[in-house]
Computed example of a mutant assay.
Amino acid sequence: MGEKLSQFWKASAQKESEGKLILPRQKDAEDEIASYASINRGDPAMSCVPCVGIASRSCVNCPTCQGTGRIPREQEKQLVALIPYGDQRLKPRRTKLYVCLAVTICLLMTSLSIFFLFPRSITVLPAGLNASSIGFNATTTSICLNMTNVLNITNNNFYPVTVVQLDIEVLHQSLVIGKTTMKTLLNISPLQSGQIFYMVASRILDSNTYNICTWTKIKVHNVLLHIQGTLTCTYLCHSEQLAFENYQYVDCRGNATLPHPLHHRDRP
């Protein structure tokens, strides 16, 4: 019986000594954790507690506390500031509205840019003969023909177009009888039309045509001419060549042809 009591008292003393060793350690650990833990979820300025038992020279201002608390200098790059999930800083107001508005504006600007800058056709339409003068050479049975023609140009784009050059060839019975190249600088406004007057000096070396033009017994003295041309335009740092052709009759009986009225095609 005495042996059992002695063993009981020894076990009780051993447990008491172990408790004395363990409890201070738990208390110290809890104090150390409490020094760095957050005690107020709503106020970030109260999320740090000044360190205890550490000299002030070994501490730095806590970035999370904005200077209201202090942490050990060794722990400066190891601590992480936690923000509650329900914090308003994680839920900016009207974020979806701002994102949708920005995307809509970008799409609208892109669509408008494509609509206004997309290249459209430039219409080139010969308006016919404006005036002509004819001369005959009986020795060589040739006809000298000077014509002034009109060319209508319509700009269907939303930006200005500049005409820089015009190349013309005049053919009679598949033979080239006249050529001309005219350097010009015609600016055509958006959705507007313009006109170019060009003159071509031609010479027809055909005895049958000479006889038709000089024969007084017939009333109709027309010469069919085939006009081919190339118009060079520039817009938006881009150059484009537009080809056109036209057939027209020229009265070769009289010495001159009066100017014909022109039909303007200006767009509103």
Rank of each mutant, 00 (worst) to 15 (best):
Q241M: 00
A34K: 13
D266T: 05
A55R: 14
N137Y: 09
S111N: 08
W9H: 13
R253V: 02
D266K: 10
C59Q: 15
D87G: 05
G69T: 02
V161T: 15
L191R: 15
S193K: 12
S38F: 10
H226Y: 15
H226I: 03
P92Y: 07
R94V: 04
L242W: 08
L224H: 12
C62P: 00
L258F: 05
A127V: 03
A34V: 08
M199Y: 12
N146I: 03
S111W: 03
S174G: 11
T68R: 12
N61W: 02
V150Y: 06
S142R: 07
E30R: 07
T141H: 12
A243M: 00
L258T: 06
Q228T: 05
C106H: 00
I105A: 09
Y36V: 04
P190D: 04
G178Q: 06
K4G: 08
Y159R: 06
Q248K: 07
Q26C: 11
S111D: 08
R265E: 13
F115C: 00
T95I: 10
T148R: 13
S142G: 03
H260N: 13
L186I: 14
S174A: 10
I83K: 01
C213N: 00
L112Q: 01
S202F: 05
N155W: 03
V161H: 08
L262W: 02
M109T: 11
E74W: 08
R203S: 09
T216Q: 12
A37D: 12
K96S: 05
S56K: 12
T123E: 15
P72F: 03
S239P: 02
I168E: 12
I71N: 07
V80W: 08
T162N: 15
L151M: 06
R120I: 04
L82P: 01
